[in-house]
Write a protein that binds this DNA or RNA. Structure first.
Lengths: 113, 113
DNA sequence: ATGGTATATCGGGATATAACGATATGCTAA
DNA sequence: TTAGCATATCGTTATATCCCGATATACCAT
């Protein structure tokens, strides 16, 4: 695979992973919040997060039992990338809705049981 | 598929298509030139070009028997995209080599027979 | 330790994708 | 019109990817 570049684009070239990135633009989220909003199985979501993480698009920190994922904004590259992605995401109804859902998501409620 | 965004990233999320875009950064090229440099079959190259075109990353113009492909730089979006792609492509030996090959490619020689 | 919860990994099935060769299409020139 | 060339499309095969449920792992609370 073509080093870093291919990984980044391949990671973003999938519908559900774009949705995840879009949600993380609202705020950092744990896996159960994302799973709840996106409506895929937990294992599937976990797999997508792994791919995004390996492409260095997102990063994770452990918070006890939870793992919180967030956009990795460290370097200049990612800033450009997210600006681009963000402009592509504008005016998409589903994505707008999911960003709002992300903002409202509360892991203390969603992740119980 | 997620409208325009997914198409763009999916199109770029493939090794050989990234190589094609990279070559087109040197100059517009016809299919036979690209095929010669990239070392895949003509039908495969044609297929990749189709995908890049549908994602509105490249465009084509007919020149008699030849079809010349070039990066589509019309809108602001693509300018940002290409700047990003270009920065990702720096310092990749294979890609640098292929950009040089692209510059030297001469369809009047390569495309005979 | 034990039980419970959140996340990660594994195995398998269905679908998508990339590659090729063969063939079709479209254009040019004689 | 015919021949020849560049490109596009088709059919097939091999591989990759996505999805799920089941299970493993890691952590917390009792």
């Amino acid at each position: 695979m073509l080093n870093k570049t291919g990984k980044i684009f391949k990671a973003l070239g999938e519908n559900n992973r774009l949705r995840i990135v879009n949600m993380l633009m609202s705020k950092p989220m744990c896996v159960c919040e994302i799973t709840d909003i996106i409506g895929l199985s937990q294992s599937t979501v976990s797999g997508h997060l792994r791919i995004l993480k390996e492409a260095e698009i997102i990063e994770d920190i452990k918070e006890g039992l939870w793992v919180e994922y967030s956009l990795m904004k460290k370097d200049e590259l990612n800033k450009t990338l997210f600006k681009l992605v963000r402009s592509l995401f504008d005016n998409d109804e589903l994505l707008e809705k999911e960003r709002r859902s992300a903002l409202l998501a509360d892991r203390n409620i969603l992740c119980k049981k």
